[in-house]
Every structure is written in structure tokens, then in C-alpha cells.
Amino acid sequence: MARLTAGIATSHVPLLGVGIDQGKMEQDYFRPIYAGYDWTKEWIAKPENRPDVVILVYNDHASAFDMNLIPTFAIGCAEEFAPADEGWGPRPVPTVNNDADLAWHIAQSCILDEFDMTIINKMDVDHGLTVPLSLMFGRPEAWPCKVVPLAVNVVTYPPPTGNRCWMLGEAIARAIESYPEQLNVQIWGTGGMSHQLQGPRAGLINQEWDRRFLDELTKNPQRLRGLPHIEYLREAGSEGIEMVMWLIMRGALNARVKELHRHYHVPASNTAVGHIVLENEA
């Protein structure tokens, strides 16, 4: 049977992809940011931890979806997905290979579980999906695992509630449990932490709020589940709403998790960078 073993959350700031692609990782500005991923890179490279498949929860930033199509929860079911051209050419990173059998299984299971997923075949994947892969795996010739893209609308209001995200996570966990192949599966939640990219209030960072969010992912996730959108917006900036996606990851894990690693750094570009690794406890 497939097993969901761990969850990872990370920011997906575009600049962090640029820093890796252009070999700037040792520069003063970048070094402390990337250093926080060293532990995870080493951990995930060990055979016992390396996932066969990652369910990668992210949002599209007006790359694959324009205003003509706004799916709340969309699951990529094609064999592969190319890196998107976000206006300055696609990132020089490998094509993402899906485990299409598992993706279709999750799609079907979730729909029967009353989550009406949008199924996507043709889709380019933007920095929201590719930057986390680069942060965990560096610059390989090919990504070392299969990736199921799960795109969430956090751009046009209303995005899904935190509670709904949590419940989708639970449904994904049930789908993984019922998949007959022997697979080590991880789920990643991406985006955040506090940031605002628009208007006179741009540049907002709330370290206290972010750190509490990180604490409570392990210790008190039920409180996070109930946070209303307005709290993310007021406290963590208009783009801080991306953190609802972390709750899909957390909802998929067991009630008890072990925090293996954590990293927090301000700033990368306009954003507070947060990263956490959680292991499922039986």
C-alpha cells in the first residue's frame, strides 16, 4: 500500500529560483536563505526518506490560468508538465514527471469523497511548483521523484477556507491509503509566509504571526484550521493568504506529527521565507 510519510511546507518566492538558476547561492544575500534548506536536502536524499511521489500543493500565478478559468482545486493528471514561461523564458529546470496513475486515483477518490476536483491535462507549471523542487533537490538532470501538481486558487476571492483545505488534505490522505502500490508519498504545501505585493501597504511582514503559525502547525493545528481569510490578510499581508495551502498538507498528515526541521528568514525579495518538515507519527 502507498504510505504518506511526511509533509513539507515552504515558501516559493520566485527570486529563490533565480538565485539557484544563476548560481548566486553563495552570495551574502542568499546564503542564509538557502542554508535553512541544507538539512532537508540531506534528509530527503537518504534512500529511506526519498519520496517516490510528492503531492505538490501550490498556486498558479497567472501563468497557466488566466481570468477565463479559475478552478478552486485542480489536480494535474497528465504524464508530464513543462516549466512555464512566466515572461522571461521558462526556468532551466527539468520537466516534471507525474505519477498519472496515482493522480487519477486521487482525483477519482476525492470526487467520490465529495471534493469536486478539476482535472487538468495540459498545464505548464510556474515558480509556485518548481521553486520548492529546486530548494529540496538542487539542480539535478531530472527530478528524483514523481510529482502530482495540485493547484489551488488563492488569487481570485474567495479562495477556499482553511477548513476546506484541511478537509481536502484528509481526503487526499484517504486516497493515498487506498492506493495498492508500494509507494513512499510526501505532501508539500507551498507559498507564504507573510508578504504583500500590492498597494501602499506592500512590504508587510509579520514575524510574530508567522512564527506562531509554524509553532501551531505541529502543536495546535486545529486553531489554524479555523482562521478566517481576513486574519491572513490583516496580519500576514494580502499574499499571505497562500498559507491556506499549508493546511492541505497538514490536514493530510496524522493528528500527531514530529517536527524534524524548521527555517525562517526575512526577507527574500518582498517575502518572509518559512519552511518546515513534519513526519507522520503512527
Binding site: G199, R201, V266
Partner: peptide, 29 residues
């Protein structure tokens, strides 16, 4: 323009002032 350059133009700050604010921990809530 980068995100930092464009975003700072919305805040009434110069790019340099905005970058300094970010380096110092960002805009407090």
C-alpha cells in the same frame, strides 16, 4: 522591472528606501 522595483513604486518610497525597509524586517503590521 523586478517585483521589488515595481512593488516599491506603489508605496511612495524609492526603491532604495523600500529595500532598506525589507532588509530591516519589512513593514511592521
Amino acid at each position: 522591472l523586478s517585483f521589488v522595483q515595481a512593488v516599491s513604486s506603489m508605496t511612495g518610497m524609492s526603491v532604495e528606501e523600500y529595500q532598506q525597509m525589507m532588509a530591516a524586517g519589512g513593514r511592521a503590521p
